[in-house]
């Protein structure tokens, strides 16, 4: 079919003003962020390195949500469910079975997040009729709220106090404790997950996700199984959230019901909204800026810092709905290109 041509000269060609080659900014941002992340522990005091590690783990959590929302177009208001389930899961492994090997607990955390997301996603996304945004949002929100309430009321899970004194994660006989070691472990895992997500969203699968996000009905009529695509990306997001939850549990040394709940689920939405969805790096920047601002403001303005932070968030969302990243990254670059136009038969 493609070889057929149409009454040639008679037809006007689409006039073309050759587009100026836009400079790509995202790779530069990625390199700068990586460089800063690599040297940060050398310029920070120890207690701040511990804080920075927590931020990296939360950035990994934000990455999971950006994959689900920024690329899959699925508004999950219950992402903390997968984070918290995995956190509790590995805390129980450590407390009850004395299993703390990094080679077991991190894959277990990932698997717990994946399984929970498959169950919730299967229920919410794989029905006979396509699920509406409201249905999925409320469904995930309800799951997160229910898990929070369940953990608070379940004695085996420590009730309101959660599970304290989780033994440290280990590699052989060596304990991985908070500080430099844990920082670079978290950074390494974040980089690997980032690169995997980047590979995925720039593949043909990423193009299908873009189609799904931009116009679900259109791609349904191309023959895409859109509900399956959604379930897959939702499950991947759950797996990454689970991994971050596992890291968090061992880094903090305790888990508590809040990490399953609605407030924490909303927090990750804010990270991504603030930084800019659909770029991956925007989610990381959002998590870092919000956590750093919270940290600094809470020390400087002890009484009113939540109000100041809230106003800042509102201002960004009102005037930069595409997030901080949109200050320097164009919409065109954010969406990206998936194929290279050129002559045929190359």
């Amino acid at each position: 079919m493609a070889n057929e041509t149409v009454s040639p000269e008679a037809l006007p060609r689409a006039s073309s003003a050759a587009p100026a080659k836009a400079r790509r900014v995202l790779p530069i941002i990625e390199i700068v962020v990586l460089a800063i992340a690599l040297v940060v522990p050398f310029v920070l005091e120890d207690y701040l390195t511990i804080f920075a590690t927590r931020v990296l783990i939360l950035a990994l959590f934000a990455l999971s949500f950006d994959l689900v929302w920024g690329y899959g177009g699925i508004m999950s208001f219950g992402q903390a469910l997968f984070f918290g389930c995995a956190g509790y899961g590995v805390a129980l492994l450590g407390r009850d079975l004395d299993v703390t090997s990094i080679l077991l607990v991190l894959p277990a955390a990932t698997l717990i997040g994946l399984t929970a997301a498959l169950l919730i996603g299967g229920f919410l996304l794989l029905g006979r009729n396509p699920a509406s945004v409201i249905f999925v949002s409320l469904g995930t929100l309800t799951g997160s709220y229910a898990a929070d309430r369940l953990a608070r009321g379940w004695y085996y899970l420590g009730g309101q106090n959660g599970i304290p004194s989780i033994p440290p994660m280990s590699l052989g006989q060596h304990d991985i404790v908070e500080g430099l070691e844990f920082y670079y472990l978290a950074l390494g895992i974040l980089i690997v997950c980032y690169l995997l997500c980047r590979f995925l969203v720039r593949s043909q699968f990423g193009l299908a996700l873009t189609g799904l996000r931009e116009n679900e009905a259109r791609i349904t009529f191309f023959g895409y199984q859109v509900q399956h695509l959604k379930a897959i990306v939702f499950a991947l997001g759950g797996a990454i959230a689970g991994l971050s939850g596992g890291l968090y549990a061992f880094h903090e040394g305790f888990v508590w019901p809040n990490i399953l709940g609605v407030v924490f689920s909303t927090q990750v939405v804010l990270y991504v909204l603030f930084g800019g969805s659909g770029t991956l790096i925007g989610a990381i920047i959002g998590a870092v800026v919000i956590e750093a601002a919270s940290f600094w403001l809470s020390n400087t303005f002890q009484e009113i810092w939540p109000i100041i932070l809230g106003v800042l968030l509102l201002l960004v969302i009102m005037f930069r709905p595409a997030g901080l990243i949109s200050l320097i990254v164009s919409e065109r670059e954010r969406v990206g290109s998936f194929g290279q136009p050129g002559r045929r038969g190359r």
Partner: peptide
């Protein structure tokens, strides 16, 4: 119902690749 944010090339590729397997999509 074209996808305005995508290039013309990607709009057509999106339509064409609908029957590619999941693994084929992931590994392009």
């Amino acid at each position: 119902s074209v996808l305005p944010a995508l290039t013309l090339y990607d709009n057509i590729l999106l339509a064409l690749q609908a029957r590619t397997s999941l693994a084929g999509l992931v590994f392009s």
